[in-house]
């Protein structure tokens, strides 16, 4: 898949490009409106990651232009401003998602997956890895075709990993994502271990061919076949 990263902050642009290339995407970059417009007029992309705070113009204008031209490319807008207004306006103008800076690379990867998958699946949004399929809206899980029931937290944790397969997740970050903003300051992640233990057990009992491995003692990684 071909991605265009429009970002004026060079180091960030570099990191995003290198990480996404590792994921297997073809990545092009632009640092300002002019370059972005040039590239957009010449090439077709599957997904555009657009920073709306660009030096020589407003990213939202580029967004509007893309939509006006009738292109159906997926657009994720990023912003350092963290403004609700930007988010609302962007989504109204037709962006598919909004990501506030700073973000984890894994998060970006997950969003890109989610957005491109949504457009491909006409039906329900689902996450797949190996023989495990998780259905978002109906909150169902199938492993090797069989329905498996999970507790709410177990479900949320599995979903989180399915969105970023192969990426290492710090357990503090996992805790924050699943239990909320205030969970990251606990000095004992016992409650995380407890859930993880149950989840892994259920996965292996159901014969899943994916595994959530503990990494370096501080995080986990979803290993897919």
């Amino acid at each position: 898949m071909k991605l265009l990263i429009i970002e004026d902050e060079i180091s960030l642009q570099e990191i995003m490009a290198s990480a996404l290339k590792k994921e297997g995407y073809i990545v092009e970059t632009a640092s300002d409106c002019k370059t972005a417009e040039d590239k957009l007029s010449v090439y077709n992309y599957d997904c555009v990651i657009l920073d709306i705070t660009l030096p020589d113009g407003n990213g939202l204008d580029i967004l509007a232009d893309i939509k006006k031209s009738g292109s159906s490319v997926n657009i994720i807008i990023t912003s350092a401003r963290d403004s609700i207004d930007d988010k609302i306006k962007g989504l109204e103008l037709g962006a598919d998602d909004y990501l506030a800076k700073p973000f984890h690379i894994a998060e970006l990867a997950a969003r890109i997956r989610s957005v491109t998958r949504r457009s491909r699946n006409a039906g329900e949004l689902s996450y797949k890895a190996g023989n495990v399929t998780l259905y978002e809206s109906s909150q169902r899980l199938t492993i090797g075709g069989n329905e498996v029931s999970l507790l709410k937290k177990e479900f949320d944790i599995l979903k989180y990993f399915l969105m970023r397969p192969g990426h290492m997740v710090d357990k503090a970050v996992l805790a924050e994502a699943v239990w909320g903003d205030h969970a990251d300051q606990s000095d004992d992640f016992q409650y995380v271990y407890a859930q993880m233990k149950n989840l892994r057990r259920k996965l292996s009992e159901a014969g899943a061919d994916i595994e959530i491995k503990s990494v370096y003692g501080f995080g986990y990684k979803l290993i897919t076949p």
Partner: peptide
């Protein structure tokens, strides 16, 4: 501060 912090974090993640 946000951007440089994010950049650092991301590099370490990588």
């Amino acid at each position: 501060l946000q951007t440089p912090l994010a950049v650092c974090n991301n590099r370490i993640e990588m």
